[in-house]
Write a protein that binds this DNA or RNA. Structure first.
Lengths: 347, 347
DNA sequence: GCCGGATTTGACTTCGGATGCAACAAGAAT
DNA sequence: ATTCTTGTTGCATCCGAAGTCAAATCCGGC
């Protein structure tokens, strides 16, 4: 009769049920629990014949090592927290899909957190700590002391399209400044002179980068654009265009929206409300290169972020830092690709 | 001098570091580890004064109970697996956002799995088991034996817009049949007679439901529609419309797409390629009620799924089953709302 | 058949928090 | 003051896998 630690009659009732432990497998295979444990770790010292025998028993019992027990002793949970502020944004689902698949492929599970508002971050951090995640990828605005909490706990993080302000943090970003410069340069070259900008909320890092870059390069050409502040959503594009038309007395050549969703809203408004031909009477550009931007009805002129490469970099950098703690907080900047589209006349 | 189990010098180095355990807190507060444990469980037998003292010590050390240790002993992980086949679909991000927020609010964390293809499901299940999730919400096509694996392990699941075929399973669905019937009835009442259907892939449950319903109700009026099979994405709408125009010799009154993305693709194609006025020359309807469907350029006539209510139901049903195992596999069907839009003439 | 080195193996301990139980304290009842 | 409640507390143990270390086994070579 075995000593103990054998699982009781299976709760689920069925054979090959749920509760099998390494002790159950050990008994069935006629080996010790240690052997079972070793059979499931690559590189462990175990005879091939023994491992095979154990694997057969494990399969018969439907045994899978308990990640909680394993995580407790190894201090590696294989969990990565992914924090995304606003999932209903058109851009993030694509990012999330890429991150999830790549992390999965590397043996990590995704613990997803989404925020209804940025103020919930502190609360959310309190939900992350108990799970002892191996690392985190964060597409939300972290304050310095929040970054520091990760650093203090030794949890590597990668900021996505954000940077640490005071506290150093590794990050992956799309180069907003040069992307926006490209757009402005082309618009100027095509002869546009009266600009409106539909900007994002002030608490968005990339939003402000794009806005600053656009203003700076327009200023260099002696142009002062009209500016409207929206919320990065489609509706803000509509409202933004109305506001700009009013502010400029209808005399606009070009509208720069700091993301695609707003650019699309502005296009629909320009056509539907003001009956303007795009790009003949008004050029509109966006930023991101989301799916709908390429749709036939829009063919938006925009900067496409290299999402796949960025996600790949974020995951690779994170895993490097998990494997080898204490690396320097590197920042990687990716250039965007100009999608010419048909919503703007470019030079 | 305390016996043992006190964490060593903090790895992170800083004070209030990461590795604090209940033993550390116990020592600082001058109580036993049991007391610390009880302080963090509501309803446990502990004096308010003691708890307060412990909480103060815990805060000072930055202590948070280790979810892995807790989960190991309680057999409750507070993890819920959310499986979504195709995140880049326009519809699912909204669902995911709702599910995540509601689960969070109920004290559950989301372990996210996304699939590049449905064939990966078995592989993915192997990644779920080790984490001993309390339950799962699944928006992917599960085969009966896959559902049975959950049942055998006693893990409650809720299928989202899917049903179990042989194996019983709780599910939350939007009523495809009556939504589609509503659309067809209105289109018929407005005098449409030559129909095309842009359907989804055959392995989609809701896709087939919608297709069947549309065909049945058209057949009842003696109408045999042209049918094209697409992949539920925007591009399929474009291809679908071209195929239908060709098949029908250009003589179409109405196009029924079984989701919005394809309907939008068809609209752009109808306008851009065939120069048709919508809805005057061609009516197009979709299904889902995704964000872009309401955009000014489209104003798609469609059926909006009550995503919030459905997500709420899914979460509530799941939690019921977690708290109280062995409930009957209930199926909940939600009616969709007809968004009249402007892409179809309705009767 | 015996020996030395390499490989395998199992007993035991560990991770960190939860909990049954007995010990204990504080107040109530007698 | 004594006994009985009621309410707190600590001890010891458990959850399930991983890793340490010493014992056991294997193997070719003599």
């Amino acid at each position: 009769m075995p000593k103990k630690k054998l699982s009781e009659a299976v709760p689920g009732g069925g054979p090959g049920g749920s509760g099998a432990t390494s002790y159950d497998v050990a008994e069935l295979a006629g080996v010790s629990q240690s052997a079972v444990s070793r059979a499931f770790r690559t590189g462990a010292s175990i005879a091939p014949k023994t491992r095979e025998k154990i694997m057969r028993a494990a399969k018969q019992l439907g045994y899978q090592p308990n990640a909680f027990a394993r995580g407790l002793i190894t201090r590696r949970t294989n969990l990565v927290a992914v924090v995304i502020s606003n999932l209903t944004n058109l851009y993030y689902p694509e990012v999330l899909a890429e991150l999830t698949q790549r992390l999965s492929a590397q043996g990590h599970r995704v613990l997803l957190f989404s925020l209804a508002s940025e103020s919930e971050i502190d609360e959310m951090l309190g939900l992350i700590w108990p799970y002892r995640v191996d690392g985190a990828i964060i597409a939300a605005r972290l304050k310095d002391d929040q970054i520091r909490q990760f650093n203090d706990r030794g949890i590597p993080i990668i900021l996505y399209n954000r940077v640490g302000e005071g506290e150093p943090a590794a990050s992956v970003c799309c180069d907003s400044a040069s992307g926006e410069r490209e757009l402005v340069r082309n618009l100027l070259a095509a002869g546009h002179r009266r600009f409106g900008i539909i900007a994002g909320p002030q608490d968005s890092y990339v939003g402000e980068e794009r806005l600053d870059s656009a203003r700076r390069h327009l200023a260099a050409a002696g142009i002062e654009p009209f500016i409207y502040r929206g919320g990065f959503d489609y509706h803000s594009g509509d409202e933004g265009l109305r506001a700009l038309m009013e502010a400029s007395g209808g005399a606009l050549d070009a509208v720069i929206a700091t993301n695609d969703a707003m650019a699309l809203g502005a296009m629909d408004c320009a056509r539907g409300v003001y009956d303007l031909a795009i790009p003949q009477q008004l050029s509109i550009v966006g930023f991101d290169g989301v799916g709908p931007a390429t749709w036939g009805g829009y063919q938006l002129t925009t900067i496409r972020q290299p999402v796949r490469r960025m996600a790949e970099a974020a995951v690779d950098m994170l895993i490097e830092r998990i494997e080898q703690p204490g690396m320097i907080p590197e920042q990687r900047l990716f250039g965007g690709e100009l999608l010419p589209g048909r919503s703007a006349r470019l030079g």
